[in-house]
Write a protein that binds this DNA or RNA. Sequence first.
RNA 1: GCCCAGGUGGCGAAAUUGGUAAACGUUGCGGUCUCAGAAGCCGUUGGGAAUACCCUUGAGAGUUCGAGUCUCUCCCUGGGCACCA
Length: 962
Amino acid sequence: MHFWLHVLKQGNDAIHLPNFRTFVVLETPVNYMEYDFRAIEKKWQDEWRKRNTYRVTDDNSKPKFYVLDMFPYPSGAGLHVGHPLGFIASDIYARYKRLNGFNVLHPMGYDAFGLPAEQYAIQTGRHPAETTQENITRYREQLDKIGFSFDWDRQVKTCEPNYYKWTQWIFLQLFKSWYNCKSKKAESIDTLIAVFQSEGFKGEAHEFLTGDIEHDVQPFTAEAWNGFSEKEKSGILMNFRMAYLSEAWVNWCPQLGTVLANDEVKDGVSERGGYPVERKRMPQWSMRITAYADRLLKDLDALDWTESMKDAQRNWIGKSEGTSIRFKLEKHDGVVEVFTTRPDTVFGVSFVTLAPEHELVNVVTTDEYRAAVDAYVNVAKNKSERERQADVKTVSGQFTGAYVLHPFTGARVPVWIGEYVLAGYGTGAVMAVPGHDSRDHAFAKHFGLPITQVIQPKDGAADVTAQSYDDKEGTCINSDFLNGLDVKAAIRRAIEEIEKRGFGKGKINFRLRDAAFGRQRYWGEPIPIYYKDGIPTPLSENELPLVLPEVDKFLPTETGEPPLARAKDWKYNGQYDYEWTTMPGWAGSSWYFLRYMDPKNENTFASADAINYWKQVDLYIGGAEHATGHLLYVRFWTKFLYDIGKIPVEEPAKKLVNQGMIQGTSQLVYRINGTNEFVSFGLRKEHDTTALHVDVNMVDNTVLDIERFKTWRPEFADATFILEDGKYICGSEVEKMSKRWHNVVNPDSVCDQYGADTLRMYEMFLGPLDQAKPWNTNGISGVHNFLRRYWRLFHDAQNNFSVSDEAASKPELKTLHKALKKLHEDIERMAFNTGVSTFMIACNELTDLKCNKRAVLEPLTIALSTFAPHIAEELWEKLGHSNSITAETFPAFDEQYLAESSFDYPVQINGKVRFKQTVAVGLSPADIEKEVMTGEEIQKWLEGKAPKKVIVVPNRIINIVV
RNA sequence: GCCCAGGUGGCGAAAUUGGUAAACGUUGCGGUCUCAGAAGCCGUUGGGAAUACCCUUGAGAGUUCGAGUCUCUCCCUGGGCACCA
């Protein structure tokens, strides 16, 4: 006699004998008789913890492999099924590498400083440390359920003093360094001071400054330097430090009350919250990432990252090669320096445009135009970033009354100001060539300025008065010594001539700007600086960590100072104010991969031994949205630490894989307007309806659970429904997974229903790792079914363990080795979706063969432990092993079994026949040795083989099926 | 506007170097088991044609004995950058 066991959706177990007529309707049919994943998964998670199975040591006898996930920010919402996608992939790869004899570092931690915890603190008064810790605890619970092989002993939290002590330490190193453009590396600021003491500063004549670092330091002699006050010296050195304080244009977000870095601003609004962002000039700590622009760009080539990721960084760095040209002012001593990538069009200049913020605007404006210019500049200044960006189509500008002289022709060229010229890029001034630049063209048209053609397109005439010809192809005309040259040659010739005559010089510009580093926020690392007599002074290293002080409120002070100004008696030595801004979110994440190597070290950020052993991340998995933020900053800090001799590698991660986002599938119901009646999806067009999002957990495969819906919200308690086929069918839409759309699916609920192994395999099965895809559970039963069938291979009909020690047959071995070979390939190239299929195919074949042979099941189970570690461990134990399966070796495949029954099928090419593709037909290896046959030989060769099917296209055998 | 990735059945997708397109899963349909629901198991599921034939990888051309894969043009979707001179 057998009985049925069903489970209520809520998790209440109930046993039903067959003659019972009352049944529990199943949400998810699960037969606990067989594969009891709940017991198995709990057992092994406990067991792994007890045995410290995944503890990692710096074992020099094995090759190392470092698999890293981008650590999560622990938000209050907990994990949804999208979060673990990358973690599962990295876990499979880490387990695979471990089984292949590597010593694998696979850690996890938390990026724990950040805005949401602080916003929550402002609203509720709860300390961010407290809520962050709660969120971390919740994350850990969720992560533990999925069966990851993280070494939790190495966990890091960026908000803990023993971690941010070293973030502050790195800040101090940056503060104490400058970038030498000659040696192309960061060096101790002492070397610069030594130069100043002995020879002063010669401006551009100093080779180490001929790079692209911008500063406004006037030349001085050694005597002058030695006579400067401490404050003056400090001010000058600030222009060279890697971490520096300066008056700078920043992205100010009034709603968030803080400054944002460029990558934190999207389309003129803050990435977090979507609040407007303005330009504001204020004292600001910055990181001189621009010094590394060229190296950050160049070193991308050697990285094993996707092209799109590298391109995103290339775009962001935005290198453009061109030249600066100085235009002498007509009635002043000064010059207007412009930057252009098209010096070949210099004879087409009809005016020069300055950015409204340009410092020369005030100087050159004539009295006649002063009022108009002031008005224009004022309007421009008061516009927010967003307004300015939204407004790109309107042409605006103002003549200053001033003229410059064309360097080659001496012609008078009017000086305008225009919003379309950006203060922060190049020199903040452009030479306008309306014939060959569409923006200049629009400006010229609008203000009736002359348009000259200086480039002749190859395919004949272009009417530049109607439209500018921007292409970098053609021949120079109306251009004196450039006439007849094509664009490329003309650019070279023009630069040569400009340099020779001293009008300017070839120059490389980057779009990349220095990164704003101070945040007017509480929940971040304090910047280890205090102000002694107005001089920003670093703490000494043994004074670290500078611990985040307590404050009464997390808001700015009444006078607008950052929250840290509220901290009572928080002064250096009881007398000097500390810096009140804190570090941005990206600070802690810019070096965490190093801390995992030696997370508990009290004396240094990580010991030299550990760093030399682990070196860098071999495989880094995370979201593509970090392309221009985290991934650029972590490369920057890595290069810096390399320069100052602290680490042996220049790049944080050799290989980067971006996992695609898992979107939510929102479910919609249709309420007939003005009623409380809901109409099913298929019939909604017959009514005037409004779509409402409903909780996806109330919907099973588009069918709404009406009873649950009624209890969901009080207003739906007496709702009525128009059904189709007796069901209420919901509409669906793919949207970002968020509470707002009620489409969040938790990994916990999937683990409860199907188990962690099913969740792991299903997330992989969903599609290619790097692709964005909506979450749906349509296929999850297929994956779950696979695991049950796999379980059944080891058990008889009564669920008794039953594995045979007989030798495996050839077809069984063939199935095994085919699967192993494919798994090696699938996992190596991170095609985990096909990896799941490979297991399924093998399982199907073995089921068909009724194979329960140890010789086949043992190796396959080791392979399965990468994807589904819990069930694999359980079966491994049942197979009589007392050791954890993690101690095994990933089974190698044996070509012999594959070769024995397959051959390369012949294809005739130009009268010769070649063997191209391996097809299994059961021929002897001797047949395969022949590489080339004529058509006649094939006929002979086939004799006696009785092929089932031979497809012959005139004179050509396409395929043979035996 | 510039740069990148992609477009294959009802759906998620596979095809790794140019070699039988649609593996694997799901959905639908049919069957089996059952007093019965569910699960399980078996068959079938790109299109057309009365069988073993033909057509089919966004569109069009090209290279090749052979193209989802390579080249060119175009269309569409997603992503990045953007008055960056």
